[in-house]
Amino acid sequence: MVLTKSQQKTVNLVKRHWQLYLLLLLPIIWLIIFKYVPMYGAQIAFKKYIVTKGIVDSPWIGLGNFERFINSAKFELVIINTLVLSFYQLVGSFPFPILLALCLNQVRQKAFKKTVQLVTYAPHFISMVVLVGIMIQVFHPRIGLTAFLARMLEVDAPNWMGSPSAFPHVYVGSGLWQNVGFRAIIYLAVLATIDPTLHEAAIVDGANKLQRMWHIDLPGIMPTAVVLLVLQTGRVLNISFEKIYLMQNPINIRVSEVISTYVYKVGLLSTTLDFSYGSAIGLLQGVVSLLLILFVNKLARRLSGHGIW
């Protein structure tokens, strides 16, 4: 076989850098075993899984599992809850990191600024279990912080953890509490890159601080904000399992059951372990998410000139 010049060059490069491929070998084996084998295993979504036969030899049943899910009573509930909670979280938590960054950017007192940053970043590092633990204690209807404040205001103590109507607000609010500071970091970084001559010109023109924040700082971070928002939209179906599963209780289950928790329950928790049915729901979510992400990335690219890849 005769190789063209460029092919010959490639072969030489491969030969020269065999050590690099050797280093890459272990990660690639890992990738195949722990990531791609389960992807291949996702075929049980189209099968009737029989334990003794395993994934490959179980009989195909086509789209039966998917039809069963779409026609089930849970379908609408789970999809609606997932979308409502995700979008509420997306929109509810969007403006606050921007506001925090804009305000912090105006602070001249270094010590105060550092303190606010240090404190507001901190909750980001608290685990979900501890976060939900804190919520249960702080919102405790008898001994919690909210109960104390309610007594001071002489109103009835709220029971936010045990009320379905409060659930979305508690979910979104606690997420905001945990992440507002950390999300502000990126906006602060963008604010630091805004051209100072813009501010100088505005001062000469007699603009006050509020006007400069509104007409210079805010437009300056808007492109970043829009791209982040669009990209997050692509993840609306991937609502985090960890927190919502911890927050679930029999009282709020009608508003708190989402796709990921439902998959876990039908697939791994229920007494009639239905691997195929659970996988089908998971696969449906995965495919729709993938399409969504590809779509919004394209959108982000069009809006800003660059997506995440």
Binding site: K35, P38, M39, Y40, I44, S260, L268, S279, G286
Partner: peptide
């Protein structure tokens, strides 16, 4: 972007 899912 895509994975086999919890159960697989």
């Amino acid at each position: 972007l895509f994975g086999g899912g919890l159960i697989p």
